[in-house]
Amino acid sequence: MLGCLTALLDLLYFLVAGTALGPFLLWPRTRPDALGLLVSGARRLLTLERIRRSVFFGDRFPARYTVADQKVLRHLAVHCRTGLLCAFVTGLLGFGVVLAGLLVTGMARGSLGWDELLTQVVLGGVLLFLDVQGLRSLAALDARTARECFGPSEQELLRRRIDELAASRAAVVRAVDAERRRIERDLHDGVQQRLVALAMLLGRARRGRDPERTDALLLQAHEESQQVLTELREVAWRIYPSALDSLGLKEALGGVAGRCGIPLRIRFEDGPPLPRLVETAAYFVVSEAVTNAAKHSSATAVDVQVARTGASLAVRIEDNGRGGADPAGSGLTGLRSRVAALDGVLRVDSPPGGPTTITAELPCA
């Protein structure tokens, strides 16, 4: 019923505003300003429609959805027709109620025959059915036009969310597979080769007859074993740093700074405890970004900022390298997938000539 009243209000607005602004809408020079005034008033009426749908029907629409000007005018025009038609159907229903009252009165007085009474009941039942179906269809049309105007429906939002989760899951699977191949390559090309060289040195030392030569080989084998341990430790840190479990994100990032080959400054703002998944994602974002800066950007300094902003953790990495980082590269794509798995956002700004800035926002809720 309120929709019928607002439809009448919309019709009066179009009649009054259209009459007043009609000449200005026809002239091309004044058309944009006149159309802006028309839409400005229409948006106020649209706010009433949004409140009506939210209060009486419990509709939930996206808060930040901006309605286009043409969609505003089209929605009010459609609402005028459906609201006035709903008022007409409601009027017919009221008229039927009056006739039913007269029929009951005639029955009480005995002025109606059974044949006429049966005819009136059948005809009244059919008209009542058509009225109720008409009101139901108009209510469904009003709900559908409201969803089309104010934003996607909950079902569409749910469908989009399912698509996002499916894409995020596939990206995580690809990232994990790429990480596994990288670890296998590091072990095969690095640690395994060094272990083979170590075994050969020890074998030569066992077969040696010259004590001085044997001591030299053992010294070389000892140095090689130290290098193997260092490289194995690097691989383990790239897989998962144990400092995250024992010391937390701040100390784990300190380990990144200690292993970085270029000056690295970390500014970490302490705050409430972070979820373990958020700490892990933040660590790998910083570690991968710093590694890329040291290997590919010719940077001489890297600045890292980690701060809790409301319900999310903001991570910002900036280097003074030559820039030109490819956001679609395998490394950054893996980071984006890792961040997206937590409903986070990863942004890469790397113009040619630098600097390169990588920003990640990780929800902590």
Rank of each mutant, 00 (worst) to 15 (best):
L85H: 11
L217Q: 03
A178E: 11
F14M: 12
M107L: 15
A314W: 14
G329R: 04
S225N: 14
F14W: 12
S111F: 10
H222F: 06
P275M: 09
G334K: 08
V348W: 07
T90Y: 12
R74L: 04
E224F: 04
P273F: 11
T300A: 13
V98P: 09
K295W: 14
I262M: 07
R207E: 07
A205H: 13
E288T: 15
R81D: 03
L218D: 03
G334Q: 14
E49L: 01
R147L: 03
V121E: 06
T66C: 06
L128T: 08
L253Y: 00
P241S: 04
T333H: 09
G22P: 03
R81A: 02
C260H: 04
A175Y: 06
R336P: 00
A307F: 00
D59A: 11
C80K: 04
E184Y: 12
L362T: 05
Y65G: 02
G94Q: 04
A143P: 04
G22D: 07
L277V: 14
P28C: 02
R60W: 05
L362P: 04
D303H: 07
A365F: 01
E164H: 13
V72C: 06
R147S: 07
H75D: 01
P351G: 06
A7K: 01
L21M: 15
D115H: 12
C80V: 09
L342T: 07
A87E: 05
A281V: 13
R207T: 09
R144Y: 15
S312M: 06
E164P: 09
Q220V: 07
E251Y: 14
T47A: 06
D270N: 06
R109N: 12
L128V: 08
V278C: 05
R29Q: 01
G113K: 13
G96W: 05
T230E: 15
G125H: 02
A100S: 13
I183M: 14
R64T: 03
L103P: 00
F57K: 08
G353P: 09
P23C: 05
L38M: 05
A7F: 05
R182Y: 03
I262E: 10
I51L: 10
A42E: 02
R209C: 06
G106F: 10
T214Y: 02
G94A: 07
G18M: 01
T280C: 10
E154L: 10
R259M: 12
V176Q: 08
R64L: 01
L201W: 15
Q133H: 07
L277W: 02
G41I: 08
R336A: 12
G18V: 01
L332A: 03
I266W: 11
G258Y: 01
L38V: 06
F14A: 11
T333D: 09
E288W: 03
V228N: 07
V98E: 09
S246E: 05
V285D: 08
A139K: 08
R43W: 12
R213I: 08
D326M: 02
E288H: 09
L123T: 15
V98R: 11
T90W: 13
P28V: 05
G101H: 10
D326I: 15
P32T: 05
S153C: 03
L127Y: 13
A293H: 10
G18A: 03
G254W: 04
V176G: 01
E279H: 00
M1K: 13
A205R: 11
W237H: 13
A325M: 11
R29F: 00
S312G: 02
E164V: 14
R159D: 04
V191E: 09
G106T: 07
R276E: 11
A341T: 12
W237L: 11
S287W: 09
S111A: 11
D10E: 13
